[in-house]
């Protein structure tokens, strides 16, 4: 079952033109596979190109060179098998909750009654059926991201891409949504590629963690998280993994910026402690 990877990334490279005419390399030499039902997290310092990487997998960004394939087919534009959840609030403010959830099926031409039944089913999954006619501005941040997640699920995608979806939430809500996401992942069997700058979040969620370097982003380490679920943050393995990942990031930071630059590391360590 796990023989053929769902997502394959080979020699991926992405460059941007900068404003002063130069070329910025955002992502370089990225190679990895994501297997069926895997939960893969990508961690890395801010601005390392991890969001760009995810946007390329989503088909929102062009590829400079290399390949991204979904079940053997090249990804060059968005496709319904690949869903995405963003960090920014992305619900359409002029549509109520159920109209937002039904948006994907609406684009795909699912008949009205069918798509609203479906949207309602997904609202029940996150316990938000009572809010079906509320507008996004009436919801809390956590609720908005719940709706954003089920909106992506309503198209029944195979792969779910998540770009720091809980980044804007407070610590408590964040932990709650992490649990909820794991429940959805276990019940609905999705393949998830999740970007975060929080080492803690990555260890809590992932089967496998890809550690990315500073720009140009490369995968500098791949760590398998062999912990039983549900995971506990008090588990000694948890702390060891965190140490290990932070050490990789620290070594990388000193290579790219020299020993003087420890600012990013401090920031990352703070993130770990806060969560």
């Amino acid at each position: 079952m796990n023989s053929e990877p769902v997502i394959k990334i080979r020699d991926l490279k992405k460059t941007f033109k900068s404003n002063n005419g130069g070329v910025i390399e955002a992502v370089a030499h990225v190679n990895f596979d994501v297997s069926e039902n895997d939960f893969v997290c990508i961690v890395g310092p801010s601005g390392c190109g991890k969001s760009t990487l995810l946007r390329m997998v989503a088909g929102l960004e062009t590829i400079t060179s290399g390949r991204i394939t979904y079940r053997g087919e090249d990804v060059s534009k968005p496709r319904k098998e690949i869903g995405m959840v963003f960090q920014e609030y992305s619900l359409l403010p002029w549509r109520n909750v159920i109209d937002n959830v039904a948006l994907g099926p609406e684009f795909l031409g699912v008949p009205r009654q069918e798509r609203y039944d479906k949207a309602m089913d997904y609202l029940r999954i996150v316990g938000m059926e009572a809010f079906s006619h509320s507008f996004p501005h009436e919801l809390s941040g956590g609720m908005r991201q719940r709706v954003a997640i089920i909106r992506a699920l309503a198209n029944d995608p195979d792969v779910l891409l998540m770009d720091e979806p809980f980044g804007a939430l407070d610590a408590h809500t964040r932990i709650l949504l992490q649990k909820e996401l794991l429940r959805i992942w276990e019940n609905h069997r999705k393949t998830i590629l999740f970007v975060t700058h929080s080492v803690d979040e990555a260890i809590y969620l992932a089967d496998r963690i890809m550690v990315m370097s500073a720009r140009p982003g490369r995968i500098i380490d791949i760590i398998d998280v062999n912990m039983d679920r549900p995971r506990h943050r008090s588990d000694p393995i948890y702390g060891q993994l965190a140490e290990q990942i932070l050490a990789v990031l620290e070594r990388e930071a000193s290579v790219s910026f020299g020993n003087a630059n420890t600012e990013r590391m401090t920031e990352m360590k703070e993130n770990l402690c806060l969560n």
């Binding site: 929102l60 992305s90 684009f107 909106r151 992506a152």
Partner: peptide
């Protein structure tokens, strides 16, 4: 109209006509 609305619509399978009618016009 915020880019995030266009991006999320594209990922959800919107074609050009959907983008015009359901994102740009109401936005």
């Amino acid at each position: 109209v915020r880019n995030i609305f266009l991006d999320s619509a594209r990922v959800l399978g919107a074609n050009h006509w959907d983008i015009f009618r359901k994102i740009l016009l109401p936005g």
